[in-house]
Design a protein around this nucleic acid. Structure first.
Lengths: 207, 207
DNA sequence: TAGATTGTTAATCGATTAACAATC
DNA sequence: TAGATTGTTAATCGATTAACAATC
């Protein structure tokens, strides 16, 4: 096994398996088969077994994969250990939903700061966070070692919010707005596009 | 050009291009090159040109693609025309954000109903919608011809909400909760997994 | 004309799938 | 033992990429 970067497809699928394993564990399961992983991930079961067996024999024939064990191995492969801090831009309904969600915490992601442009929102409390003004983005990102920024702002404010984050040192932008966001090389922009995914799902429904 | 179903990858990428074209149009552009489409979609520019040229010569050398024209052609390829109705389950922060968003409307998706289990929420108004009780799911889905259901409920309520929608005839479930959702064959479940996508982005940041 | 970008080829690599022996 | 499921092979298909002539 060479220590090279994984192909994009493999890394994407392993991340997906990890997410599913975490949820399956929560629902009380201790083992899971490639067939069940396939149902939840929409990845072919043979492909799943191939992905995993490239790194070792993680399963038991006739039984499936032990969830705790497999979770540990995939975390190793993805170098996923420890905590990472996130900043959320925008404290509207979407920003509040993201900051309150447990979805990130399950994977070691900690929402460490919440910012808003509106003076009326500054100081209001969301869970354990207090909404901060944009003037504090730079200092907070550096103090807390934030490497991921989440855009939960209106489309017309998305690029400006991204610029502030990138200037402060953020290298990964999660864009929940519809707007297109430009970034220099070295910064990864990942745009959520529910409408795009819906178009895709609908195509297979219509045909 | 045979009238067969597109490969999954092609349909996914065309959906993505359509989403980007819609946003690029909004920002005032009238043309776009495969290189720019590549920056926003993270798809290789040669791959984009190949995807498009499989259906015809849509571009102009030295200029790029006309956004309006290309939008029309991709809509044809994806059989995307007309309106489709959505139902959103859950009127918390996330459900409210989804129901208020323009992201879906840009592609002909109309949020036609919003449901909640909490008696205190019933009757409250979100945009042009009034929150309805779960007892009305079945009738509303059938009356309005709703084919897509969006889960914006707490994880422990996700499966029950999905079951109600499926029983009423919904064939596409968009799961915004972290929970795993089971569905019979014939129903497509599409789970958003921001944490999973973040794991993926982080892997390439860490390596 | 000069610059830019498409459309297309060719070569390589990864994904997909069926099938099945191994084995829990 | 019987049933289930992994690990693996082999064959095919789609994705990726560089390169470049065509042409706007």
């Amino acid at each position: 096994m060479t220590e090279e970067r994984l192909p994009f497809g493999v890394a994407a699928r392993l991340s997906r398996y990890l997410q599913i394993l975490t949820q399956a564990k929560k629902s009380g399961k201790s083992n899971i088969s490639s067939r069940m992983l396939s149902e939840y991930s929409n990845v072919n079961p043979t492909q799943i077994r191939r992905d995993l067996s490239a790194f070792g024999k993680f399963g038991k024939r006739g039984v499936g994969y032990n969830i705790d064990y497999l979770t540990g191995r995939i975390k190793e492969i993805l170098h996923n250990s420890g905590q990472h801090n996130l900043a959320v831009m925008g404290s509207g309904n979407l920003g509040t939903a993201i900051a309150s969600s447990h979805a990130f915490a399950d994977h070691g992601f900690n929402v460490a700061a919440l910012f808003d442009a509106a003076p009326g929102k500054i100081g209001s409390v969301v869970g354990s966070l207090t909404v901060q003004p944009l003037s504090e983005v730079s200092d907070t990102v550096q103090e807390k070692g934030i490497i991921v920024g989440v855009l939960a702002v209106p489309p017309e404010a998305a690029q400006a919010a991204a610029n502030m984050l990138m200037k402060a040192g953020v290298r990964i932008i999660f864009n929940y707005s519809e707007a297109l966001v430009d970034a220099p090389p070295g910064v990864a922009v990942h745009s959520m596009s529910p409408a795009g995914e819906l178009l895709y799902a609908l195509y297979f429904y219509l045909t």
